[in-house]
Amino acid sequence: MELNLSAVLDSWRFLLSGLGVTLLLAAGVTVLSLFSGTLLALGRLYGPRWLSAVIVFYIDSMRAIPVLVVLVWVYFALPIATGLNLPPFWSALLSLSAHLAAYVAEVVRAGIQSVRPGQVRAGMALGMTRAQILRKIVLPQAVVRMLPAFGSLLSLAVKDTAIATVIAVPELMRRADAVAGQTYAPVEVFTTVMILYFIVIFPLTRGIDMIYRRISFLGRS
């Protein structure tokens, strides 16, 4: 078959601006889900029993529902159910973050629980408070231990943005769809898209792996 590269070259600006939206959405999802996922984990581990129960229910539901369903629900059902009408980008940001936060919460919880109980005892023996022990002893080590899992979550944060195409967020996938439709060159366009996602995500996960290999001793008690 003949490759029609001009289909890609003629609209590279259009595609790149789509990639910009993808990265913006991914960055927003990362920050929001890390923040709320950490809060969920802390609430589950150290909160009152009723709060733990609510959080466990939330995490279990989010892990049992496809992210696409959450997205579509937030965009089409939430406005009718609550009157809250969010534009596509914000709907995507909210639903993807809410979904990923459940996974972040599990990673953070496992990280915290993997720190040896002797470390907490050492802090207690010094006369430190529970909060000081958490902040200065447990969390720093847990963060190091969580790094490899964070690498996977980060790549998920980028990849999941592609489904925002179904509610017409103008990210990379949506733009590629449009270009492919106009130029009748799906092979060229979608191959380019694959390569672009790979170029973004591969260094992210590899970079985190490399950092982890260099600092893992900071979390090894």
Partner: peptide, 16 residues
């Protein structure tokens, strides 16, 4: 606790 030092079998130094 502040007035009693404690030393553990496995040291329990803070690795970070």
């Amino acid at each position: 606790r502040q007035r009693m030092g404690m030393v553990f079998q496995n040291f329990e130094l803070f690795p970070h």
